[in-house]
């Protein structure tokens, strides 16, 4: 995983609450057995006017001209902002894979669904929870100033506005450590193998019916 330290990018506004994982990456694309290549199908049913299937020639597909990511001013966006409960629904990690593969590095929302939130960190994607009022303000500011650019400083936990005003955000210390250092948490857990073995020894002595 690539380390995430700071990121500056254009913000794309997805003005919807409860954006679910079926919308982020529709089910027909979950049949693929690799982690890559989901980006072209991110928000497939909103982005295109025809029905998408894996392996389609994308150049022949008709784009929905009204969908935010199809607007020329957001073509190079790498930060996504949305409303409450982003990523609700299924546990499919294909959702963060698609978002990351498309080119987003950061998602800002007032709240996220738990499984999606946790999946993001495993893929170098930073979901940031911000108060609704700040999210409202950013949505409003984007309408007035496009392209609207933000800088995310993970080390200092700041979202830096175009005015250079810094807004603090919370991030779990362990997740921050893994993101900044690009660490694979399986490797970290493996360092505690002896501890796991010791746990098992005691555990199965007590709960012998589970052996």
């Amino acid at each position: 995983m690539k380390p995430f330290i700071t990121h500056t990018g254009i913000v794309a506004p997805l003005d919807r609450a409860n954006v679910d994982t079926d919308a982020i990456i529709p089910k027909q694309f979950l049949k693929l057995i690799k982690k890559t290549g989901f980006g072209p199908h991110l928000f497939d049913e909103w982005r295109y006017l025809d029905h998408g299937e894996p392996g389609m020639d994308l150049t022949r597909r008709k784009k929905n001209p009204d969908f935010v990511l199809n607007l020329p001013q957001y073509e190079k966006a790498s930060i996504l902002i949305a409303r409450e409960n982003f990523g609700c629904g299924s546990s499919r990690e294909h959702a963060p894979w698609a978002i990351e593969d498309y080119g987003f590095k950061v998602i800002l929302a007032p709240s996220f669904a738990d499984i999606f939130f946790s999946n993001c960190f495993k893929n170098g994607l930073l979901p940031i929870v911000m108060p609704s009022q700040i999210i409202d303000d950013i949505f409003a500011a984007i309408k007035l100033n496009t392209p609207y650019t933000l800088t995310i400083d993970l080390e200092n936990q700041h979202v830096i506005l175009p005015s250079q005003e810094k807004i603090n955000f919370e991030v779990d210390a362990f997740r921050k450590h893994c993101l900044i250092n690009g660490l694979d948490d399986i490797g970290l857990t493996m360092q505690h193998s002896e501890c796991i073995k010791q746990f098992e020894k005691n555990y199965y002595e007590i709960n012998s019916w589970l052996l």
């Binding site: 982690k35 299924s90 546990s91 499919r92 990690e93 963060p96 499984i115 946790s118 999946n119 495993k122 893929n123 779990d172 362990f174 948490d185 399986i186 857990t189 493996m190 193998s193 796991i196 098992e200």
Partner: peptide, 20 residues
């Protein structure tokens, strides 16, 4: 609890899950 694919791999490899 439902988990993502990275966590599936983590549980396969370590029999554990990192949780708060």
């Amino acid at each position: 609890i439902g988990i993502g694919t990275s966590e599936v791999e983590h549980v396969l490899a370590t029999q554990c899950l990192i949780l708060k």
